[in-house]
Design a protein around this nucleic acid. Structure first.
Lengths: 128, 128
DNA sequence: TATTTAATGATATATAATATCAATAAGAAT
DNA sequence: ATTCTTATTGATATTATATATCATTAAATA
């Protein structure tokens, strides 16, 4: 009993997120998928990205400035965001658990997730 | 030689951010200021909030889901965000510097800022 | 008080994302 | 293989947040 149907569009979108390793946005995923499926709609891209996130197939990386990005890599990790060019890079945080234990937050706040975004200028942009 | 003029609107907006301690959004700041200055424009609120951030009078707290929030408290601190009601709470992070030293990021990335957003459910919402 | 121009208010525009809805097609039932 | 059900699609409208534009207003100074 599956309530989720296996459409060409959905698998193309998943495949695209898995093939683009630069944390693409919905717009970039659309521009890539439309090459192979010319009448795919942006609404379909947005819908399926959300659905794939819900199903745990991909992750959403939300950055403050603009559009959401999507990540094929499922292991727990964080991101560094370049505010010059908008690039997103993976980051490891071995000290995080230690830090979370020592963090003081509001009373009785149920911590579920910790989003850490480093901002700065990436190597490429520094060279310019 | 001042290029920034002291308008009634600007000081009202600053005063409002300083009086509302719940990390208000531009919309909330507008709704508060319009009580005292009925024909203030939303554009003016947005413009002045950005200007006050630039001048270091207030801070912008960018959350992924929706509108930006503004903070009168200037000391370095972080935030916990409740994804049920959208409330933002202050957080202290004594272990952060330690963690930043041990974090592994992309080669030659110039780290300038670290935005940490904890997501979860606040005490109020947990009681419901 | 007059002058200069930064700032305002109103509106248009941009961007990201969701909502709506008739048409289509995936997958089950026959 | 064909029919049936309804999830999904594509197209478009709508929402939300924020910025851009521009004539008018009003700070600050001369």
């Amino acid at each position: 009993m599956s309530i989720s149907r296996n459409t060409i569009q959905r698998s193309l979108i998943l495949q695209t997120v898995r093939s683009l390793h630069h944390h693409p946005t919905a717009e970039e995923i659309y521009r890539e998928t439309v090459k192979y499926h010319p009448n795919i709609s942006k609404a379909t891209v947005y819908r399926n990205l959300n659905l794939l996130v819900q199903q745990g197939e991909i992750l959403k990386v939300e950055v403050p400035d603009g559009a959401d990005h999507f990540d094929f890599k499922l292991q727990y990790h964080h991101h560094a965001y370049c505010h010059k060019c908008g690039s997103i890079y993976d980051m490891e945080m071995p000290a995080l658990e230690d830090m979370m234990e020592r963090a003081k937050g509001p009373q009785d706040f149920l911590l579920e997730e910790c989003n850490i975004l480093f901002r700065g200028v990436c190597s490429k942009c520094r060279q310019k």
